[in-house]
């Protein structure tokens, strides 16, 4: 069986259905030429990705955050940034940008960073958002399969990602309105998405329950998930391995 260049590329790009993928993989075992063609396409993809990957961890230039913040006000209630409305009056965007040039999503997570030394749930390192404090601890230790009624942080689902890490969704209960998705990477739990959960009484038609993930988070999960969510046993095993895959 021969495979066209288009098929080889589609295989490397993850675009083949299961049957075609299996056919390519079976053929590669005794067809060295096909294996070479696949490897060549894969090498190009890897080379390009490796080259541009460092951009992801560069600090976000303040002018981009300024551009985002310019339309930020007025902010409706029920949103992330309205969590501590009184605190917002004390600093302007310009000052904020000057103080923390490497911020990403500063306007959104500012309330969590500014809660006071040692008690932040989100930290910034080289432009990346990382879980810290009680959030970091909960992501590492808490099991979704063993919810604790009094816990400040609720873990939603745990799942393996397409980038070979474990990811977990969470809700910060004490703020009653912030949900997110974090993935375990070498530097810690990296926040991939944050979103507002409607407060009880303000839930729209598409948010049936307070514990339901905001659309943006659910979409991020859809984009990142590889396979199924972890069941109780798999989740426990993943925790025992320190969330390493």
């Amino acid at each position: 069986m021969t495979f066209s260049d288009e098929t080889v590329m589609a295989y490397v790009d993850g675009e083949l259905d299961e049957a075609d993928r299996a056919a390519v993989e079976a053929a590669m075992r005794d067809n060295a030429d096909l294996a070479r063609r696949v490897e060549r396409q894969r090498a190009l993809r890897t080379r390009l990705q490796d080259h541009f990957k460092p951009v992801l961890s560069e600090p976000i230039p303040p002018r981009l955050l300024d551009a985002l913040a310019a339309r930020g006000a007025p902010r409706p209630s029920g949103s992330i940034v309205a969590l501590r409305p009184r605190a917002r009056a004390h600093w302007s965007w310009r000052e904020w940008g000057a103080m923390a040039a490497s911020l990403v999503a500063g306007a959104l997570i500012a309330p969590f960073i500014w809660r006071g030394a040692g008690s932040s749930e989100v930290e910034l390192q080289q432009g990346q958002l990382l879980a810290a404090g009680t959030l970091g601890t909960a992501l590492t230790r808490q099991l979704a399969s063993e919810p604790s009624a009094g816990a400040a942080i609720q873990i939603g689902i745990s799942f393996p990602s397409r980038t070979d890490s474990y990811c977990r969704t969470f809700v910060l209960r004490q703020h009653d309105s912030l949900a997110g998705l974090a993935c375990h990477e070498s530097e810690g739990w990296r926040i991939m998405a944050l979103g507002a959960v409607a407060r009880p009484g303000t839930a729209g038609p598409y948010r049936q329950a307070a514990s339901e993930m905001p659309g943006g988070i659910a979409h991020a999960v859809d984009e990142m998930i590889a396979g199924q969510t972890l069941d109780a046993a798999a989740e426990r095993a993943a925790r025992a391995r320190g969330w390493q895959r």
């Binding site: 976000i60 985002l68 949103s79 940034v81 990346q128 944050l194 507002a196």
Partner: peptide
């Protein structure tokens, strides 16, 4: 989409958008 949801979604996309622009 409420403005803050959109700002939040764009904020977390910034690193990827910068990489795309760099390419």
């Amino acid at each position: 989409m409420p403005p803050d949801d959109l700002i939040g979604e764009i904020a977390v996309l910034l690193p990827r958008l910068r990489r795309f622009a760099r390419a």
